[in-house]
Computed example of a mutant assay.
Amino acid sequence: MPFVTKLTFQSGDKTVLDRIVGDLKQHVEKKGAECRGPHADQPKRLNIPQYRSLSPGDEFPAWDYTVYTRRLEIHGADEVARSVTQRAFPDSVHVEVEVEQKKPLGHRRN
Score class of each variant (00 low, 15 high):
D91T: 01
G76I: 13
R70E: 01
G12K: 04
V21I: 15
E59K: 09
Q101L: 02
T85N: 15
F9G: 02
T15R: 04
T85A: 11
Q101I: 15
E73F: 05
V80N: 00
Q86F: 10
G57A: 03
P38I: 02
K30H: 06
V95M: 05
Q26E: 06
R19A: 08
A40T: 11
V80P: 00
C35M: 08
V97I: 14
H107T: 10
P38H: 13
T69W: 00
G76R: 09
L72S: 07
R70W: 01
Q101D: 11
K102S: 11
L24V: 15
S53H: 05
V84Y: 02
K31Y: 11
A77C: 10
G32L: 07
Y65Q: 13
V21W: 00
A40Y: 13
R82A: 06
P49N: 11
D18F: 04
H39D: 01
R36Q: 08
Q50P: 09
A62G: 08
V99Q: 08
V93F: 11
R87M: 05
Q86C: 15
Q101K: 15
V99D: 14
Q26T: 05
P43M: 09
I74M: 07
Q26G: 14
S11A: 06
R19C: 13
H107N: 14
D23L: 02
E96L: 04
I48P: 07
T15L: 12
D41L: 11
K102F: 09
I20C: 01
D18S: 09
R36P: 00
D41H: 08
H27D: 12
H94R: 13
Q26H: 05
D58A: 14
H39R: 06
D64F: 13
E100Q: 06
K14E: 04
I74T: 14
G12W: 00
G106C: 08
V16F: 03
H39S: 08
E34I: 08
V16Q: 03
D64V: 03
F89D: 01
H107E: 13
D78I: 04
A62T: 12
T69N: 02
F9E: 01
V93N: 00
T15G: 10
K44I: 11
L46M: 10
A88Q: 09
T15C: 03
L72I: 03
R82W: 07
H27T: 03
V93R: 02
I74P: 00
N47L: 05
F89A: 13
T15I: 13
E34T: 02
A77Y: 07
D64N: 03
L54I: 05
K25S: 06
G22I: 08
R82S: 15
K103T: 11
R71E: 12
S53R: 07
R19L: 03
K30W: 15
L46I: 05
V84D: 00
P90E: 01
T66R: 08
P90D: 00
G106L: 06
P49E: 04
Y65V: 10
D78P: 03
G12N: 01
Y68F: 14
V84M: 03
P56C: 09
A77N: 10
V28L: 01
R71H: 10
K14M: 15
G106D: 08
E96Q: 14
R36W: 01
Q86Y: 09
